[in-house]
Design a protein around this nucleic acid. Structure first.
Length: 505
RNA sequence: GGGGGCAUAACUCAGUUGGUAGAGUAGUUGGCUUUUAACCAAUAAGUCCCAGGUUCGAGUCCUGGUGCCCUCACCA
């Protein structure tokens, strides 16, 4: 068992109690000022009595005088505690104060001799929370990337940039939500536990419901439930959905991640394209990427991306032709290329053929698409949930959005022909070679379509990856507050089977 | 899962050819009423990731394992 409770600090806590103080009072001062506000509005508040609350992040003591750095969410401000301006009891608290403790200081807002804005304590000085663990080194902060992720709470308070970045993530999501609401969308929540997994191709996590004795899957996408809502007559829906995919970890993959999916009746993939562009632009603004001239530029992996709209659009077939020199209708040239790259269709069927073509696309074309760019009109055979083009059913009304070398969004004119949908489901389920294919036909979804789903556009955006690009973070771990980690040794039962929480029995 | 790298005090890091485990910060004690990585003095603190092996002797060399990072594969 690691030592969480530092013996010296336990002694200080006892000393604090001996002074008659509560180390963990329930109440804080009713009114308090934020550090950033006091700095910004110093002229108006100078000479007035103010109160600050926060964590002590620095301390410079002089016997009868001490300077404290007090840190709240908004920033840092200095407090000065002097023996001749405080009660003897309050001044004695300095003796039992450690870095990392939370305090409240009431006093006059003024400046020191060297001009630093400072709260000169002359009213109440209280310890609001006694910390029993040492904060990290004050100059370097917490640097070890594993510790930063495992103990994000420490990372957040000891590295101000980290806190700033996560608040920017929050602002980005708020901005996207605002765009949806401006377009009269409704925010909904759909199940996370799915009896049949679908709406994407990925391996699921399994779980088990004890009293129903049934296997359930953590959702890999909310898509099929959101479209049921279109059937039900809710015309514009979105969900910021945590989804779970049972695949390897990497700088771009976490087993659970956030997608925002949205569906709009009486729209189509072109409508989704326009809205996606609007969302990305709003997100970029919220991330603070707007330059003085109104342009939006993101730096990601040492490359600059211009997010000033409109973004480029290119048809799938045109992009393929441009980067490989091959016409997608030229089967012989494609077959030659497949042989060259050791890509082989699983069988003679259309589905297998186009899957192989798409593998070429991912290998040869996608790396040439740094973005931002919309690739439109995908082969219909590999789009089981997209509506084929009326003018040429080889192509589906679908686009993907690429940025920073990653696929960030995927959208279609939603397939609403129940018979065609059933056929596509059956085809997928029959693909035994694909471990990511759905486990069974989602009959209820087919039935829902049978009642009629209005023509609609739908789209899913990978929120974490979008934020990676906007904040210039190389790894997804840096945009997730608590990225998945293996169980830490020596911390107790984490990772062990807990009675009542088994998958089965 | 394959390949490469890292693991030393609470934190940031040194550690020579294999020869008694080190510094700074944080902590503790004392001094100091305008500092800001305050300063001065004293002091405490280690499963050198784990388990084996080689050796008179291992933080250091070898084998195996664990965790993390990078990379490839799969994926968003």
């Amino acid at each position: 068992m690691p030592e969480f409770f530092h013996p010296d600090r336990l002694q200080k806590l006892a000393d604090l109690q001996a002074l008659g103080a509560d180390p963990y009072p329930a109440r804080s001062p009713q009114e308090r000022d934020r550090a950033a506000t006091l700095s910004a509005c110093f002229e108006q508040r100078e000479g007035h009595t103010v109160t600050i609350c926060g964590r002590v992040s620095g301390r410079r003591g002089y016997g009868k005088l001490a300077f404290l750095d007090v840190q709240d969410e908004s920033g840092r401000i200095q407090a000065c505690l002097q023996k001749d301006r405080l009660s003897a009891d309050d001044f004695a608290l300095l003796k039992v104060l450690n870095l990392g403790d939370f305090v409240a200081v009431t006093g006059e807002l003024s400046k020191t001799k060297v001009g630093e804005i400072t709260v000169f304590g002359d009213g109440d000085f209280t310890i609001l929370t006694k910390a029993l663990e040492n904060p990290p080194e004050k100059w370097h902060g917490l640097a070890d990337s594993e510790l930063r992720a495992r103990q994000r709470y420490v990372d957040l308070f000891s590295n101000p940039d980290v806190r700033e970045d996560f608040l920017r993530r929050s602002a980005v999501i708020t901005a996207m939500r605002r765009v949806f609401l401006e377009h009269n969308y409704h925010e909904v929540e759909t199940p996370v536990l799915h009896p049949i997994y679908g709406g994407a191709s990925a391996r699921p996590f399994l779980t088990h419901h004890n009293s129903l004795d049934m296997t359930l899957y953590l959702r890999i996408a909310p898509e099929l439930y959101l479209k049921r809502l279109l059937v039900g007559g809710i015309e514009r829906v979105f969900e910021f959905a945590r989804v779970f995919r049972n695949e390897g970890l990497s700088p771009r993959h976490n087993p659970e991640f956030t997608m925002v999916e949205f569906y709009q009746a009486y729209s189509d993939y072109q409508g989704m394209l326009a809205l996606t562009e609007e969302l990305v632009v709003a997100a970029a603004r919220a991330a603070g990427l707007e330059g003085g001239d109104g342009s939006l530029k993101a730096m990601f992996r040492e490359q600059e991306y211009d997010l000033t709209p409109p973004f480029a659009r290119v048809r799938y077939a045109d992009a393929f032709l441009e980067h490989t020199g091959i016409d997608l209708l030229d089967r012989q040239a494609l077959a030659d290329k497949m042989a060259e790259h050791e890509v082989a269709p699983a069988d003679g069927g259309d589905y297998a053929w186009w899957k192989a073509v798409n593998e070429l696309f991912e290998r040869l074309v996608e790396p040439e698409l740094p973005g931002p760019v919309f690739v439109t009109d995908y082969p219909a055979a590999i789009c089981p949930l997209a509506k084929p083009s009326a003018s040429d059913p080889v192509w589906a009304e679908r686009f993907e959005f690429f940025l920073g070398g990653m696929e960030l969004a995927n959208a279609f004119s939603e397939l609403n022909d129940p018979q065609l949908q059933l056929q596509k489901f059956e085809q997928q389920v029959a693909d035994k070679d694909d471990p990511e294919a759905p486990n069974q036909v989602d009959w209820d979804y087919v039935r829902a379509l049978a009642y009629g789903m209005p023509p609609a556009g739908g789209c899913g955006i990978g929120v974490d990856r979008l934020i990676m690009v906007l904040l210039g973070k190389d790894t997804i771990r840096d945009v997730l507050l608590f990225p998945h980690m293996r169980a830490e040794e020596g911390l107790g039962e984490a990772g062990e089977e807990v009675a009542g929480a088994q998958l089965s029995e």
